[in-house]
């Protein structure tokens, strides 16, 4: 006779992806490569942030960029124009990157040749928040014109990020963006996240970000031994 049984599983849904992410993180640790997962809405300024960062850091830091954004052939060119290698991931219209998608791009690089690798994730505040790609730090970029309420509409992204960069600060005075409210909500959701106020256009805050990044890279390398 048929019987019904309850089987307890208690397994994290994305555990396969997280395992692969951990494997990538292990390789990055071994090679002393600081690995950033850069996430934002389309148009928030991911490529501008990369260009500004490259200009300030490429003398001391060996950088590479992995382009995951769907329409980023143009972005790849902008990065290469700055003298940094950019590898394109063929995403085929996906809404996010996961560890398995990043792995083939990493396989084309000799990790030991890089102090810093940045993945420009697909422009989306929902899906990329769910997936570990083996990053050392998740960096989220929000721009003033998007509004301070993005944290309420897409809370997971703000909860999982290690760094929140608020870009286009030059628009603050002409907008109704409530910076205090955003910071208050951030303090509840993710008090450990580092916040940088920035304008890639005027250069405000870019040096502070680069200084932080250099310290983090040095600490990561020390850990690699």
């Amino acid at each position: 006779m048929d019987s019904v049984q309850l089987i307890k599983i208690k397994e994290e849904i994305l555990s396969d992806n997280t395992e692969l992410g951990n494997e990538i993180r292990g390789r990055m640790r071994a090679s002393g490569t600081f690995f950033i997962n850069l996430m934002a809405s389309p148009g928030a300024g991911k490529t501008s942030l990369l260009v500004q960062t490259i200009r300030r850091m490429k003398v001391d830091v060996r950088m590479g960029v992995i382009e995951g954004d769907i329409e980023s052939m143009v972005d790849s060119q902008k990065i290469q124009d700055e003298g940094v290698r950019a590898v394109q991931i063929e995403t085929g219209g996906a809404c996010h990157l996961d560890a398995a998608m990043v792995q083939p791009a990493l396989a084309t690089l000799n990790l030991a040749d890089y102090d810093l690798l940045v993945v420009e994730n697909i422009g989306n505040l929902v899906c990329p928040a769910e997936f570990d790609i083996g990053e050392t730090k998740k960096v989220m970029l929000l721009s003033i014109p998007e509004g301070h309420d993005k944290i309420l509409k897409y809370p997971l992204m703000f909860t999982v990020c290690d760094v929140l960069i608020i870009n286009k600060m030059d628009y603050l005075d002409s907008s109704d963006f409530d910076l205090q409210q955003l910071k208050a909500t951030m303090a509840k959701l993710n008090p450990k996240a580092r916040i940088f106020e920035m304008s890639c256009k005027t250069g405000q805050g870019v040096d502070a970000w680069c200084a932080w990044l250099k310290e983090e890279i040095a600490a990561w390398k020390q850990q690699a031994g």
């Binding site: 048929d2 019904v4 049984q5 309850l6 089987i7 599983i9 994290e12 849904i13 994305l14």
Partner: peptide, 11 residues
């Protein structure tokens, strides 16, 4: 949280 708690199966 994002978890598979369990399943009910027919044996």
């Amino acid at each position: 949280q994002l978890m598979i708690d369990g399943i009910e199966v027919q044996l």
